[in-house]
Design a binder for these strands. Sequence first.
DNA 1: TCTCAATGAGACACTGATGTCTCATTTGAG
DNA 2: CTCAAATGAGACATCAGTGTCTCATTGAGA
Lengths: 182, 182
Amino acid sequence: MAVDREQVLRAAASLLMRKSSATMDEVARAAGISRATLNRQFAGRDALVRALEELGIAECEAAAARAAVDDGPAADAVRRLVRELEPAAGLLAFLYSENQLFEGDEQNEGWTRLDARVVALFRRGQEVGEFRIDLSPVWLTEALYGLLVSAAWAICEGRVAPNDFSSNVTELLLGGAVRREK
Amino acid sequence: MAVDREQVLRAAASLLMRKSSATMDEVARAAGISRATLNRQFAGRDALVRALEELGIAECEAAAARAAVDDGPAADAVRRLVRELEPAAGLLAFLYSENQLFEGDEQNEGWTRLDARVVALFRRGQEVGEFRIDLSPVWLTEALYGLLVSAAWAICEGRVAPNDFSSNVTELLLGGAVRREK
DNA sequence: TCTCAATGAGACACTGATGTCTCATTTGAG
DNA sequence: CTCAAATGAGACATCAGTGTCTCATTGAGA
């Protein structure tokens, strides 16, 4: 009888990723509940988006923890991170387009924490000599987000194969498009 | 006295890139005109977005033409393309988040044409041996869009330096993050 | 200077989404 | 089985955004 909030959030994310302008009624229907119940769980659309934001942050931080981004070679850490981040990519794609979240006076500090971890990863790779130094860690972090979102979208629209998600993002981010001999 | 439609579109794009939920009233104020005039120029918000889409397509195609994407080494063509695309990146970022444009029954064929040109560029690079073949041209195209949007956003929020736009996108897309000896 | 088209300002009704409420029904625990 | 809590369905008022209209004002060209 009790509604599973997380299941509702996942259904909402799945719908909002494809149609960010979906109505609360559509979200409720997609989650298999009534609009009344949806409003009982989340007081208003804003609260729903905030909850999705919290879920996204939690999933990303959990992914970073599972990937152990501070251990081993930085390149391998990036590969693990991307692989662990794949399930959250759809949610990330929605939040990425919800720039309403960032235009306010203050953004959720969870993003700050997450950014710090990823930036630290790229900086570590630079200091060890694995990554080039002419691309700033901040830009590499932003690029990682962008590639994750692009890949999620491209897969969602059937332009690229779902199985290639991880390798597509990782290979392009680390190796680039230019062919290397050897 | 006569309103410059293109100037209005640019002001609208500049605002909508930062706040995609901006009101028609806000858009009009940002463009320095009244809401009545805005509605005289663009019959409704939908028409405004469509006009922005047309402008974006036109700018991208003009950039592709200026960059002569079919001439010379593919890597250099990509560099030229990114450089020419920079002024349109902001508009592209807005359109990218306006997934409402793609969820309809039919998307503007301008995107199809543009995609075809960029895909052809990457495919040419692969056939010549410049680009690696384990990343599909379609994915490289999507990644290019994603990096352009990421870079535009990061600059808009002051996270990276505006001057680094072209090199950031180009270097990461072509070379990747991993450092190469010589 | 005169004229007329275009603009700005404001009022107006309309639409769609939203949030809240009620009540019948269902579900799960005791 | 019984009952309390939660849900679903629907009605309702509210509100913000939108599109349209009118009218006074502006400005460029004849």
